[in-house]
């Protein structure tokens, strides 16, 4: 989720300034922090899965009950073009970011920076389209089960993309500040500096999360526009 500091030593710095951690302890806490980043990154996906799972449940529940034949009268569909564009931007952004991450692992920092910022741009475009779509609907929110689910999807997807963008942007911003020191230490892929190690763990979590965003967008694109 976020890069959290390793607070153990932080308290030691204040309360017992002369109490130094052994190198073993530092390494141990370091691994714990990396592990927490790993766990946290996956947990965020779990949280998101149940969140969007609830929407999927609502979708299928209302679809199968079809009360008063008002699940989806006349097969109404939200603006297909905008929906496809949102989907395309999100998936393209995620793929691009994934590509950038592999480039970073290969040691190419510049590629990662460029793809990262382009991803941010793409994400914001998708976000803007998702919000704009609300003004282009051919149905009222309460006119059918489909319409209700679609409104909720718009709100939830906005929150999801916003979350992904925040994560990615903070990573990029932090990278700008760490850039020089980490590059001096062998680059982001190999540096043994604690910040660099945490950065790598964070980066991977963020990539997985973007994969999750793309997956969710794929599923609901199919649900709302294709079938």
């Amino acid at each position: 989720m976020t890069t959290e500091p390793v607070a153990g030593s932080e308290f030691i710095a204040h309360e017992a300034p002369t109490l130094r951690e052994t190198s073993e302890e530092i390494e141990y806490e370091m691994r714990s922090a990396e592990g927490a980043m790993w766990t946290g990154g996956r947990l965020v996906i779990g949280i998101g899965a149940f969140f969007f799972g609830s929407l999927a449940f609502a979708y299928f529940y209302l679809r199968s009950s079809n009360n008063e034949d008002l699940w989806r009268p006349n097969h109404i569909t939200a603006p297909t073009g905008i929906g496809a564009a949102v989907f395309a931007f999100v998936v393209a952004s995620a793929l691009l970011y994934g590509y950038g991450t592999t480039r970073l692992r290969a040691g190419n920092t510049l590629d990662w920076e460029v793809t990262g910022w382009v991803t941010v741009l793409g994400g914001f475009t998708a976000l803007g389209l998702q919000v704009w779509e609300f003004t282009q609907l051919s149905f009222f929110p309460g006119s059918s089960g489909y319409a209700s689910c679609f409104i909720a999807w718009g709100v939830m997807n906005t929150a999801l993309i916003l979350g992904g963008l925040y994560w990615l942007e903070t990573l990029l911003a932090r990278w700008l500040r760490l850039r020089r020191a980490v590059l001096d230490d062998g680059g982001p892929a190999r540096s043994t500096m604690p910040v660099a190690r945490l950065f790598r763990a964070n980066l991977e979590g963020c990539w997985y999360f973007w994969g999750f965003i793309a997956f969710v967008n794929l599923v609901f694109w199919v649900l709302f526009y294709v079938i």
């Binding site: 008063e68 034949d69 008002l70 009268p73 006349n74 009222f140 309460g142 006119s143 059918s144």
Partner: peptide
């Protein structure tokens, strides 16, 4: 009601007696 009267809520029923 949920809608202004000139909007068709796609409802096949107008009143009691569905």
């Amino acid at each position: 009601g949920y809608y202004p009267d000139n909007v068709d809520p796609y409802s096949k029923v107008e009143t009691y007696g569905a």
